[in-house]
Write a protein that binds this DNA or RNA. Structure first.
Length: 644
RNA sequence: GCCGACGUAGCUCAACGGUAGAGCAGCUGAUUUGUAAUCAGCAGGUUGCGGGUUCGAGUCCCAUCGUCGGCUCCA
């Protein structure tokens, strides 16, 4: 008997029954057999020693495949755990999965790991790798697993065993003197691991829950080649250079002052300039698309927050009330109640809808001190907020419009590093959510349809919706690949109900509108932080705080420099003249470090001929040209969305 | 908030428990300069803040403020 194995290229091979993944790889070629770390068998990861159960599609995995790397690093995390158990026999094992670019393992230990511990552990890992211990996979019964880990005193593993659903297979992997509960798969032996590096240790709660004990997590990574490891570490170093906190200081964009408090941002002149440009563009774009723009207060009576329901479900993110003439006021964490007051200030007709009320609204939210992060997580921030009040039948079209606006914004600002999540109800526990089934279904369908109509790729997140409605959440990635929620489009059934707002329908009866909360940038702070990292501080010309710096060769060229500046300013460019008593090389270096898009060197020749010697940021000398020619050349880049 | 590391001049960093230093930036002067740092001089600090130990604390201990990494990616 033989089985049919279908390979990724569509070809089919007959293999003897009982063939292993290793056999299939060897059948394809010796090179692949040597590089293989496992395979996807009918989409499920398997180890090299596992046999193919029957006819199946098989994709052999190497370190080059993300799934292959996971296997490789998962085994590395077991080696880490084995090393820790050797050096700290009292350590209790928790979990140790592969993650993007590496792996971690959590331990319960009597004291946190020190940097010296990490060095010793890494050395011990080296010995385990050198010993080339084979990993043995074994399927065991639930009872046997319980007994085994109870006997080993591994209480977290016992917990994990108990959480494995009934009927699911339980496997353990053993290497030398070390045994771990693990679904696998793994490399055949520890000697397959080449280059390892432990990166850091940090506290982490068991199951990410702060009511649970704090464990000590060790992060590390592993590669097949030393050059890959070095390249990875260099990439980390490069990413650190893009960090908006570093660039924010170097470029004089913003600062957070200890004197004021954490998470409260000062936009310095250059950062403020960029923000102004973003905001101007934002306003124009919203006007074009039928938004009414408003300003509302920063504080409001506590009763308002009672009505809105924020006191029930958002209080822990709100600052304590302040008392004014015996009445309690709250700093606003959201703009919606204020926009609702504007909506209900007059009787609305079905003809008035949709009503789109927008505001660059500054809100304050309490964030725990440990989670604050530069501009990306702060305590006071300005949302590019808007609330769309519409009839249910208008919802889908409105959502399409919002997605279109969002996509336009991302394009204009040169963003492509984002991911969309469609946050849906958890179908298992519908009672967690307010609003009727039919309305939810309609809203979820409208969101899905809108995403499809606008061709926005997304992943579905069942159970990710807020209690008041489904949403589309956009995650922006920072320089180190960490995700931050930016734009979001949320359908809300709750607040219209709580405020009892309505509109007069065609039928003369009152109807309840739906509210869409939406931000298309997120907040000015987070978006700016993202923007800095995305461009590594080198803003496209239209957003650069200073677009052109004129660099006179000597003092006698200052007057001509001022003339060039005036001419370019007439064309709407932001220009400054470097009048310092320095050599040209110094001025160029400084302008390059300040990431100014264009440097204009002016000396005797340029002054005599009415020219400028153009140097472009990072590109270098473009040669001399008349001032007017330069102005014409950069004109397209001065407009919003102008590339370069 | 919790675990760990860190906090010295505007910035980047030195200083076995024994008189706080350097480079850059700043200021002054000289130089008038052609595509990524001209030279010299000057000034700049209660070592985050507050206690304690010690003959003596930037250094050791406690407390506090702040920064950084982690606390999501579920054997």
């Amino acid at each position: 008997m033989s089985i049919q194995v279908t390979l990724p290229d569509g070809s089919v091979r007959a293999c003897p029954e009982g063939s292993t993944v290793r056999d299939v790889a060897a059948g394809i070629g010796p090179g692949l057999a040597a590089a293989a770390v496992g395979a996807l068998v009918d989409g499920r990861a398997r180890g090299l020693a596992e046999s193919i159960p029957g006819d199946a599609s098989v994709a052999v995995l190497t370190f080059a495949d993300p799934k292959g790397r996971e296997i490789y690093r998962h085994t590395t995390s077991h080696v880490l755990a084995q090393a820790v158990k050797r050096l700290f026999p009292e350590a209790k094992l928790a979990i140790g999965p592969p993650i993007e670019d590496g792996f971690y393992y959590d331990f319960e230990v009597s004291r946190p790991f020190t940097p010296d511990d990490l060095t010793a552990i890494e050395a011990e890992m080296g010995r385990i790798i050198e010993d080339d211990l084979p990993l043995e996979r074994r399927e065991i019964s639930r009872e046997e697993a319980r007994g085994l880990f109870l006997g080993l005193g591994e209480r977290f593993k016992v917990d994990l065993v108990e959480d494995i659903p009934e009927g699911e297979m339980i496997t353990i992997y053993k290497q030398g003197d070390f045994t771990d509960l693990c679904a696998g798969p793994h490399l055949p032996s520890t000697g397959r691991i080449r280059k390892i590096k432990l990166l850091s240790a940090a506290g982490a709660y068991w199951r990410g829950d702060e009511r649970q004990p704090m464990l000590q997590r060790i992060y590390g990574t592993s590669f097949e080649k030393e050059s890959e490891l070095i390249a990875y570490l260099q990439r980390l170093e490069e990413a650190r250079k893009r960090d908006h906190r570093r660039l924010g200081k170097e470029l004089g964009l913003y600062q957070i002052h200890e004197e004021t408090g954490p998470g409260l941002v000062f936009w310095y002149p250059k950062g403020a300039r960029v923000r102004e440009l973003i905001e101007d563009f934002w306003r124009r774009e919203h006007r074009k698309r039928g938004y009414d723009l408003v300003y509302t207060p920063h504080i409001g009576k506590i009763d308002l927050w009672e009505t809105s329901g924020h006191l029930d479900w958002f209080r822990e993110n709100m600052y304590s009330p302040m008392e004014v003439e015996g009445k309690e006021y709250m700093l606003k964490p959201m703009n919606c109640p204020f926009h609702i007051l504007i909506y209900e200030s007059e009787t609305r007709s079905y003809r008035d809808l949709p009503l789109r009320i927008g505001e660059l609204g500054t809100v304050y939210r309490y964030e725990r001190s440990g989670v604050l992060h530069g501009l990306l997580r702060v305590r006071g921030f300005t949302q590019d907020d808007a609330h769309i009040f519409c009839r249910p039948d208008q919802l889908e079209d409105e959502l399409v419009e919002v997605i279109d606006l969002f996509q336009h914004m991302m394009k204009v600002f040169g963003f492509d590093n984002y991911e969309a999540l469609l946050a849906l109800r958890d179908p298992q526990s519908k009672k967690k959510y307010i609003g009727e089934d039919a309305v939810w279904e309609r809203a979820e369908a409208a969101l899905t349809a809108a995403l499809q109509r606008k061709n926005l790729p997304y992943t579905r997140g069942e159970g990710d919706a807020k209690f008041y409605g489904p949403a589309i959440d956009i995650t922006l990635k920072d320089a180190l690949g960490r995700g931050w929620q930016g734009p979001t489009i949320q359908v809300d059934f709750n607040e219209p109900e709580r405020f009892g707002i309505n509109y007069m329908g065609e039928d003369g009866a009152r109807h309840r509108p739906v509210i869409v909360h939406r931000v298309v940038l997120g907040s000015m702070e987070r978006f700016f932080g993202s923007l800095i990292e995305h461009h590594a501080g080198a803003f496209p010309t239209w957003l650069a705080p200073v677009q052109v710096r004129v660099l006179p060769i000597a003092d006698r060229h200052h007057d001509y420099g001022a003339e060039v500046r005036r001419k370019l300013e007439e064309h709407g460019a932001r220009v400054e003249v470097d009048r310092r008593n320095e050599k040209i090389g110094y001025k160029i270096r400084d302008a390059e470090l300040q990431k100014i898009p264009y440097m204009l060197v002016v000396g005797d020749r340029e002054a005599a001929e009415g020219k400028v010697a153009v140097r472009q940021r990072e590109k270098g000398d473009l040669g001399p040209m008349p001032v007017e020619e330069f102005a014409a050349r950069i004109a397209p880049y001065l407009r919003p969305g102008g590339a370069v």
